[in-house]
């Protein structure tokens, strides 16, 4: 059986994740416990859902660093409504989703209509969206304060599925990953996004409305940040202005670790999914192995470097292989099937 490069790439990431889990599992007792595994999936779901959304933008050749602001804004909006007694939970959820999508839409407008670069737009809009949250924040005598969300039905979103250990956010994360994977690999929209990331000019020439693609990418990123924000507030049962801090850079890093390379055209939702899992397992394990924050920091950095190294090394190898395959094909004029059988 011949594996496609894409499949091999995924197997490498899966291998890394499993290797790391085994390493941590063998060196600590509490790693392979039901409680810990569900916790990993819950923690990964927040950054993972954001990474799924951001992957649309990154595959399309852009970058979205505004996740911190969007999560903060959505979280504060939900908390604001969540303290009102008897407010229907579905409305809170819908408001949160709309707020996230709106932020993404604004990002998209700035990029497609004002022609600003993605990097600076989203870096600055992160501040702006966090600023929206400041408008909404709870205050006591004019000073920023914190309040607990009391809406039971809304808080249930942050908890377990009844009678199991599994968190709702983890399930939604997995489902979303499947949906996004299908969108990215099977639909025209997904294929166009990949094309946009690999070569915007020729995508344009072939009659694809790339501005629309970019816009939708940002809206989806915003929407997914909204989903993550909702779950985070429901879990914490309070929202703070620090909610989602550092999520912007982290989501992009998660994508990159999973093979959704900056610059576009590579990777898919599965990569973003595995990347999030990788990062969270890494931190979770490091807390257990070494309690010293300095060592945790150092290893976090080094292991991400290793993951990126594998990714780059693999991409290069594949490029070389494709190139040499093409050369050989030219030389020998062998039919396609023969080359496949060789490699």
């Amino acid at each position: 059986m011949v594996l496609k490069p894409k499949t091999i790439r995924k197997l490498i990431t899966i291998g890394l994740v499993i290797a790391m889990a085994l390493l941590f599992g063998m060196s600590t007792e509490s790693f392979f416990t039901v409680r810990n595994i569900t916790m990993i999936f819950r923690d990964a779901s927040y950054v993972g859902i954001i990474a799924l959304g951001v992957s649309f933008v990154v595959i399309g050749g852009g970058i979205d660093l505004s996740a911190n602001g969007i999560v903060c804004f959505v979280g504060m909006a939900c908390a604001r409504l969540g303290v009102l007694a008897g407010f229907p939970a579905p409305v809170i959820v819908i408001v949160g989703l709309l707020a996230g999508a709106l932020c993404g839409y604004l990002n998209g407008l700035a990029v497609t209509r004002l022609h600003l670069s993605e990097f600076i737009t989203t870096l600055a809009s992160g501040y702006i969206f966090a600023g929206f949250a400041v408008f909404l924040v709870f205050r006591e005598n004019g000073n920023v304060a914190s309040a607990a969300v009391t809406n039971k039905a809304f808080l249930a979103l942050g908890g377990h599925i009844p009678h199991t250990y599994i968190y709702i956010s983890s399930v939604v994360w997995v489902l979303l990953a499947i949906v996004v994977y299908i969108i990215q690999t099977k639909t025209k929209f997904g294929l166009h996004t990949v094309a946009l990331g690999s070569n915007p000019k020729s995508t344009m020439m072939s009659g694809v409305d790339i501005d629309f693609l970019k816009l939708i990418g940002f809206v989806l990123a915003g929407l997914f940040c909204g989903i993550a924000g909702i779950f985070q507030v429901a879990y914490q049962s309070a929202s703070t202005l620090t909610l989602g801090d550092s999520m912007g850079f982290q989501a992009v890093a998660v994508c990159a670790v999973g093979g959704v390379v900056l610059g576009g055209g590579k990777g898919d939702a599965m990569g973003a999914f595995l990347g999030a899992l990788f990062m969270v397992i890494l931190l979770n394990g490091l807390y257990k192995i070494s309690p010293s924050p300095s060592i945790q920091f150092i290893f976090q950095g080094l292991i991400i470097l290793v993951a990126i190294f594998f990714d780059t090394w693999f991409n290069r190898m594949m490029e070389k292989k494709l190139f040499s395959d093409a050369v050989r094909k030219r030389k020998n004029q062998t039919p396609l099937g023969a080359v496949k059988a060789e490699g």
């Binding site: 390379v261 900056l262 950095g301 190294f309």
Partner: peptide
């Protein structure tokens, strides 16, 4: 390797150091 992620990773590592 893409410098964005590399330097994000070394940022952690250097703070740790």
């Amino acid at each position: 390797m893409p410098s964005f992620v590399v330097t994000l990773a070394t940022q952690y590592a250097l703070y740790g150091l």
